[in-house]
């Protein structure tokens, strides 16, 4: 039987075809590892906590509640959203939390596996995949909550609701792709995660998370360019049964996300030895 041969040398393999093949073979071979890591983290997270799963949506709920209060008390005036404002705010903050969680996932998974990375050779893609599993687990709970809200506020069932899992998967993939591109540098410099944290708290205000896109003005232009806008709006429209306003832009983003995700995955793959050497 021929033995598998590995060669380690300074030159890195940058032929995309071969990289792609290797990467996907590793993802396939490490499917158990990815699941096991996700299972381990989810179990450990909930075994050491009483509120457990509630933490997953407590923050977005609180943010939304603040905005609902500001709106109801008349402190700020928000343009008509077309649906009951609490539903609008809750869907916005929950979807936003899914995206930001997705962006932080690759670097979070890689950082927490630092000890492993410097000791054991395993398919690193498993870290990313396990991160996606965890995201989908957390997101599915958030979605249940969202759906509960939709019925609670009398919006009722729409067939478009069935598309929700696909849309959420799209949002997760979009976030993970951005996170993956930032991970190699973020592993070297802590500044990156600070910038992301700060940047995204600002970015929320130019995305229709808790208020809708204004009719005109500079804010409308910014929001319409912002790629997060179609992700949030399309998801929300599907939940509430409205016809998606930015569908074309959304589909373009989605179509770009898939190949970009692959590129990000491959760049992550070839960056890992350097990350291990410098910061693990």
């Amino acid at each position: 039987m021929a033995l598998e041969t590995r060669i380690y040398q300074k030159e890195s393999n940058v032929r995309p075809g071969k990289l792609f093949k290797e990467s996907f073979r590793d993802i396939y071979n490490s499917r158990f590892l990815a699941r096991q890591l996700a299972e381990r983290d989810i179990k450990a997270q909930y075994r050491q906590s009483y509120l457990g799963i509630i933490w997953a949506f407590l923050t977005p709920l609180a943010t939304a509640a603040v905005w609902v209060f500001l709106n109801l008390s008349g402190t700020i005036k928000i343009t008509e959203t077309g649906i009951p404002y609490p539903v609008y705010a809750f869907t916005g903050t929950l979807l936003w939390s899914i995206i930001t969680e997705a962006i932080n996932s690759p670097s979070g998974s890689t950082k927490s596996a630092r000890g492993l990375l410097s000791k054991i050779n395993f398919p690193k893609e498993a870290l990313i995949v396990s991160g996606i599993y965890k995201l989908l687990f957390n997101s599915s709970i958030k979605i249940l909550l969202l759906v509960a809200f939709v019925f609670l506020f009398g919006i009722g069932f729409h067939w478009s609701l069935l598309l929700l899992p696909i849309v959420i998967l799209g949002a997760v993939l979009f976030g993970v792709t951005i996170g993956l591109f930032l991970t190699p540098i973020g592993m070297l410099y802590n500044d990156v995660s600070k910038i992301i944290g700060m940047g995204f708290s600002f970015l929320m205000y130019i995305t229709p998370v808790v208020y809708s896109v204004p009719e005109q003005g500079i804010m409308r232009t910014i929001m319409e360019i912002n790629p997060f806008t179609p992700i949030i709006l399309t998801s929300r429209d599907l939940i509430t049964g409205a016809s998606p306003e930015y569908l074309t832009y959304y589909l373009i983003i989605l179509a770009l996300t898939v190949p970009l995700f692959v590129v990000a995955l491959l760049s992550y793959r070839i960056s890992i030895p350097i990350i291990v050497e410098r910061s693990a």
Binding site: L3, E4, T5, R6, I7, Y8, Q9, K10, S12, G115, L117, S118, K119, I120, N121, P273, I274, V276, E277
Partner: peptide
């Protein structure tokens, strides 16, 4: 380097077969 965790700066390692590491 032999375990494939980091890359060498010069030279070459060729390993055949399944590699197991009792490092940790």
């Amino acid at each position: 380097i032999l375990n494939g965790l980091i890359k060498p700066d010069a030279g070459k390692v060729t390993i055949k077969g399944k590699v197991g590491a009792l490092i940790e």
